[in-house]
């Protein structure tokens, strides 16, 4: 059913909180995601032209690096981009088959690979570019929030979190229930002023991003670029340079 579900009272809103201040852009989450999901319940995550000139494949998580600001305020911002499990998920309502759906109990957006006809309309409806087409299976694929990990009772409690969160070496990724104002993730969003990506489009994403903070440790002033050496030493160096360049 591609109507958006009416969540029962007390329903969870599972999602990620990603800290843009501490993300170092190492791509470990993307690799870990690929590794887990390529052997997960949904089957292989395809790769095309693996060892060729134009390698390509399906990834649920892509890491971009940007430069923001200018001058002294200039900094690198790394942005891990994956499905944000939106509350107003247009990818779900446009689906003609019911393959694309949002779970009422926890808000996770999934694709039923057995129903998907591969029309790709859902990927057009997603402003985040979070859905990628599986050319091998002919169906759409997307982040599952590692639904096969987070509910796996065979795993120790501490490991019941998405692979990307478990692997992040800088602890920039957090997983939890964003419907519960007392949860660790909700508290983080409150404390750090978590934001929506592309909030103006009105998809109401569940995942939140914590903006980069202003540096509190003063950075040393940059050294002035050293010009040509002067004096007798400079003359000698010039001579040496000329002799060696011959």
């Amino acid at each position: 059913m591609t109507m958006l579900p009416k969540s029962p009272p007390g329903a969870k809103k599972l999602g990620l909180v990603i800290d843009l201040d501490t993300c170092v852009g190492c791509h470990a989450c993307a690799v870990s995601c690929k590794e887990w999901n390529t052997k997960g319940e949904a089957g292989l995550l395809p790769d095309y032209d693996k060892y060729g000139a134009e390698p390509d494949g399906v990834w649920f998580n892509r890491i971009h690096s940007y430069e923001s600001g200018a001058g002294d305020g200039c900094r690198t911002v790394n942005l891990p981009r994956s499905c944000l499990h939106c509350e107003d998920a247009l990818c779900v309502t446009v689906c003609p088959t019911g393959a694309s759906y949002k779970r009422a109990e926890d808000g996770i957006v999934l694709v039923d690979a057995d129903k998907c006809i591969g029309c790709k309309l859902c990927s057009w409806a997603c402003p985040y570019g979070a859905r990628e087409f599986d050319e091998d299976a002919g169906v759409m694929r997307k982040c599952t929030l590692c639904i096969d990990r987070i509910y796996d009772k065979d795993l120790p409690q501490a490991e019941r979190e998405p692979a990307c969160v478990a692997t992040c070496p800088s602890r920039a990724r957090h997983f939890g229930d964003l419907a519960d104002p007392q949860s660790k993730v909700s508290q983080l969003v409150k404390k750090r002023g978590g934001v929506d990506l592309l909030g103006e489009l009105g998809y109401r994403p569940t995942n939140k991003y914590l903006p980069p903070r202003k540096a509190t440790i003063p950075t040393a002033p940059r050294e002035a670029p050293t010009g040509a050496a002067s004096g007798i030493g400079g003359a000698l160096l010039k001579l040496l340079d000329r002799a060696l360049s011959r």
Partner: peptide, 10 residues
């Protein structure tokens, strides 16, 4: 299957 979700999908 594309005939089933007329309630939400154009």
């Amino acid at each position: 299957r594309a005939f089933t979700q007329w309630r939400s999908s154009w």
